[in-house]
């Protein structure tokens, strides 16, 4: 039950993009086509779950017992960079089609603040291992959901007559604002 609450909270109530403002760059950057939005979302979810596992192990089994919490930031960022590199190599070796589908999005994930934010949040909230994994998966699912809805709206926006100065990033931000407003409806759920 506890895990379900964490999952729902990370997915819709406290959506990473729409209420924590993490991962705005890919949210604006790769949300113009549904297919690429889905690929990006899945790649990010995958890396998020792995990050949750690895950073939990790193933080609670190495940094905390030895009193090295102040090394949190550099160690997390290095682990994430190495992890993304590793995932990229594994996918390239194991599944060529998947690699081609995710290809360009994988390196971009290193600089996605949602990933580092996830690692920081789970150490800050002192989740247990299972909670961290569920939290990582929920955050990834929420990110994918937001990106997918946004890309659907943007595909429709292409066909509408937006005032010229508002085309591109400004109208995307305003749409995101309306979307965030809609997601506020979930606030009472938990």
């Amino acid at each position: 039950m506890d895990l379900l609450i964490i999952f729902i909270s990370a997915t819709v109530v406290n959506n990473f993009v729409l209420s924590y403002f993490l991962g705005i760059c890919p949210f604006i950057g790769v949300s113009n086509k549904t297919s690429s939005a889905l690929s990006m979302g899945m790649a990010t979810t995958f890396v998020m779950v792995l990050t949750a596992i690895v950073s939990w192990l790193l933080y609670f089994l190495i940094l905390v017992p030895y009193g090295l919490e102040f090394l949190q930031i550099p160690s997390f960022i290095l682990v994430i960079a190495a992890l993304v590199q590793f995932v990229e190599m594994v996918i390239k070796k194991v599944s060529q089609p998947l690699y081609r589908a995710l290809g360009i999005f994988l390196p971009l994930i290193t600089t996605n603040c949602a990933i580092l934010g996830l690692a920081l949040l789970l150490s800050m909230r002192e989740y247990t291992f299972m909670q961290s994994v569920v939290f990582g998966f929920g955050a990834g699912a929420g990110f994918t959901l937001a990106l997918f809805i946004m890309s659907g709206i943007r595909e429709e926006l292409e066909l509408t007559d937006v005032p010229k100065p508002f085309r591109g990033a400004p109208i995307t931000l305003i749409t995101a604002g309306l979307l965030a407003l809609a997601f506020m409806g979930f606030a009472g759920m938990i």
Binding site: S19, P163, P165, A169, P170, I171, A176, G177, L178, A180
Partner: peptide, 22 residues
């Protein structure tokens, strides 16, 4: 002061600054 307001403010600011420059 809610998240939605941040997106709206930023979008409008960017749009108006574009309009002014144009």
């Amino acid at each position: 002061i809610l998240p939605a307001g941040a997106f709206l403010t930023f979008g409008l600011l960017m749009g108006f600054s574009n309009a002014y420059l144009e």
